[in-house]
Simulated scan of single mutants.
Amino acid sequence: MLLPKRTLIIGGIAVVGVVYSMGMKPPDGLSSPASGAGTCKVVVIADVLNVREKPDVKSKVVGKFNTGAETVADKVVQNGFRKLANNRWVSDEFVKPLPGHDCG
């Protein structure tokens, strides 16, 4: 039996709403700390923060965070960039350690 077009549209909207309410998954490698990370967790204070492949402003952008996004991070800061995970770096000036987290 074929469903009416209206039913399919309403069902599609419902599915999109559920997926949207669940939020976006961070790019691969950002949901767990890099080795030796300890308990560092940071919040993004820039409007949009580029995640780069290397600790260099000219490095390839491999992801982005919006204001208020929280992520685990490594204590390693190199060339003004904080390591999040392998091949994942953000400008340290645009992240702030969350209270109770040791970002050394």
Score class of each variant (00 low, 15 high):
residue 44 V to K: 02
residue 31 S to C: 00
residue 65 F to W: 13
residue 67 T to D: 12
residue 47 D to F: 01
residue 48 V to N: 13
residue 15 V to I: 14
residue 31 S to N: 12
residue 12 G to K: 00
residue 95 V to W: 08
residue 39 T to P: 05
residue 88 R to L: 08
residue 69 A to T: 13
residue 46 A to R: 08
residue 10 I to W: 03
residue 50 N to R: 12
residue 36 G to I: 05
residue 67 T to V: 00
residue 71 T to F: 09
residue 13 I to V: 15
residue 3 L to P: 04
residue 46 A to M: 03
residue 85 A to M: 11
residue 51 V to D: 14
residue 26 P to N: 01
residue 36 G to F: 03
residue 5 K to R: 09
residue 102 D to N: 10
residue 5 K to W: 02
residue 48 V to L: 09
residue 36 G to W: 02
residue 14 A to K: 00
residue 7 T to V: 12
residue 103 C to S: 11
residue 2 L to P: 02
residue 13 I to D: 07
residue 46 A to Y: 01
residue 50 N to V: 09
residue 57 V to E: 15
residue 17 G to L: 10
residue 83 K to V: 03
residue 13 I to T: 05
residue 54 K to G: 09
residue 31 S to I: 05
residue 91 S to C: 02
residue 22 M to P: 01
residue 103 C to P: 12
residue 48 V to Y: 08
residue 43 V to S: 08
residue 86 N to Y: 10
residue 54 K to T: 10
residue 2 L to C: 02
residue 82 R to D: 12
residue 38 G to E: 11
residue 54 K to R: 14
residue 80 G to S: 11
residue 88 R to I: 04
residue 52 R to L: 05
residue 66 N to L: 15
residue 41 K to F: 04
residue 54 K to A: 15
residue 100 G to F: 07
residue 82 R to T: 12
residue 75 K to W: 00
residue 95 V to K: 09
residue 96 K to I: 04
residue 56 D to T: 09
residue 53 E to N: 14
residue 69 A to D: 14
residue 83 K to S: 12
residue 97 P to H: 00
residue 50 N to F: 06
residue 63 G to K: 05
residue 66 N to G: 15
residue 17 G to C: 06
residue 27 P to W: 00
residue 29 G to F: 07
residue 18 V to G: 03
residue 25 K to M: 11
residue 31 S to K: 08
residue 30 L to A: 13
residue 11 G to K: 02
residue 57 V to W: 06
residue 67 T to G: 04
residue 38 G to H: 08
